[in-house]
Design a protein around this nucleic acid. Structure first.
Length: 429
RNA sequence: GGAGGGUUGGCCGAGCGGUUGAAGGCGGCGGUCUUGAAAACCGCAGACGGGGCAACCUGUCCGGGGGUUCGAAUCCCUCACCCUCCGCCA
């Protein structure tokens, strides 16, 4: 299985790849790169000897067959072949071993940042790309969402602890209706924007989790269940894997999918105010966008997708800012990423509600998803595709910002206009 | 959970361990013919690697992985998936 970019690209652009990995602040991946290049060199040298041996073995085996068919004695050739076959087998064993190493090392090489991504070491180096909206002047001290939600009985955190554990909020009554309203609202908006809806499996196999980059080495983020399944940390995983091992029709690009699913994340090591209320939970709902596009279109697609998510926040009247992630805060699979953070007046902090990324060819290579005119049955050379995904939006923090932003002094929550048709109410109380 | 049958190219479908260097059909592409098209006929056609400036040479791939053999689509082991019947079940 190929890693991010194919081996040939890495081989021919070693210096640039090394620099890019260093910019991502992933020293262990630099070590993997060094080993990868060494193993690759040995592999290619061995491959020549191996192919020569295989060619000779094939020719002789054919000759044995011919002799036997003609009723002649092939014993001498066959015994001579024995030694050659042993040698070829030895080389094949070595090749297999090197191939296994190459595969494993390839999976350790992260995607490279796009040239437009600013260099940075930590999240503090991210760039505030834009800010939208005016933070509301309350005239009273706005409550944090957990107070609002629990006082109305819209979310029952204690019941969640009893049923499952911390980080599994139970939405009740109006809270549940709010979830359902957001789900329909987001999906309707994306449907109008040309995304076709998918209801995917909520568990995936290891092959899928590897293709999109959750495996190897990031098991800490996913719940692994029995029978080799993983609970999805985002619907990006099952939706993107829909086209694993496929040659797409170039004329069908861009392919746009949206999906509403619960997402499951272990969030090991999180604590304190980060996990208070709905700030960080183990199970949450999210509407996701996924696109398969021609390489030259992918950066326009990234902007377009980001605008879709921003438009939702704007229609909901929630002030937000867009961050351009620096190299050091990019994920393993990402070439470029924007985060959208919504303003939480009750906590006086920004909450990440969306992350939109261009994976370029990184996932497509792991997925073995390519494109050509006519698709699998078509003609011509297969070409790479780019994949992108983004949230539109994550529910819990959106709900947190929503109830905090629209809370009134009497404890009620005004419903933003865009959501009224979905809730059938102007105000929640 | 039990028993049985399957997995071959874009699709369907053959395939005694040795011209499978994957039959045949459909679909695709190019051509002949035609005012044009259809039909008919002829021809071309996979994926992914390695070597080479190139022409070109070469390897691997018949669900995945191992094995037997001079030689495996074909035999053996193993895993996954699909189908049929039984059981259970929203």
């Amino acid at each position: 299985m190929a890693g991010m970019l194919d081996l040939r690209f890495i081989r021919e652009n070693q210096a640039a790849v090394r620099r890019a990995i260093q910019a991502k602040q992933m020293p262990e991946a630099v070590l993997a790169l060094d080993r990868l290049l060494l193993v690759d060199e040995e592999y290619r040298i061995l491959k020549r000897d191996l192919e020569e041996g295989q060619a000779q073995r094939n020719a002789n085996a054919r000759l044995v067959g011919q002799l036997k068919r003609e009723g002649r004695d092939a014993a001498e050739l066959m015994s001579a072949m024995s030694a050659l076959s042993d040698e070829v087998k030895r080389l094949e064993d070595r090749e297999r071993s090197l191939q296994t190493q190459l595969d494993a090392l390839s999976l350790e090489i992260p995607n490279l940042p796009h040239e437009s991504v600013p260099y940075g070491v930590t999240e503090h180096d991210n760039v505030v790309f834009k800010e939208w909206g005016v933070k509301r002047d309350f005239g009273f001290a706005p409550a944090p969402h957990w107070d609002i939600l629990t006082s109305h009985g819209w979310v029952d955190f204690d019941a969640g602890v009893k049923v499952a554990g911390a980080g599994f909020p139970v939405f009740k009554g109006t809270g549940s209706r709010l979830v359902r309203a957001l789900r329909n609202y987001f999906l309707d908006r994306l449907d109008a924007a040309g995304y076709s809806e998918i209801v995917p499996p909520l568990m995936v196999n290891a092959a899928s989790a590897t293709a999109t980059g959750q495996l190897p080495d990031k098991e800490g983020q996913m719940y692994e269940v029995t029978d080799g399944f993983f609970l999805i940390p985002t619907s990006e995983v099952p939706v993107t894997n829909v086209h694993r091992d496929e040659i797409l029709d170039q004329a069908a690009l861009p392919i746009k999918y949206t999906a509403f699913t619960p997402c499951f994340r272990r969030e090991a090591g999180s604590h304190g105010k980060d996990v208070r209320g709905l700030n960080r939970v183990h199970q949450f709902d999210k509407v996701e966008m996924v696109q398969f596009v021609a390489p030259e279109e992918s950066y326009a697609a990234l902007e377009e997708m980001t605008r879709h998510s921003e438009a939702l926040l704007e229609e909901l009247g929630l002030p937000y800012r867009r961050l351009l992630m620096c190299t050091g805060d990019l994920g393993f699979t990402q070439a470029k990423k924007y985060d959208l953070e919504v303003w939480s007046p009750g906590q006086e902090r920004w909450l990440e509600v969306s992350s939109i990324s261009n994976m370029e060819a990184f996932q497509a290579n792991r997925l073995r998803t390519r494109a050509r005119p006519g698709g699998a049955a078509g003609k011509g050379k297969t070409e790479v595709v780019h994949t992108l995904n983004g949230s539109a939006l994550a529910f819990p923090r959106t709900i947190a910002a929503l109830v905090e932003t629209y809370q009134e002094q009497d404890g009620s929550v005004t419903v933003p206009t865009a959501l009224r048709p979905y809730l059938g109410a102007d105000s929640l109380r």
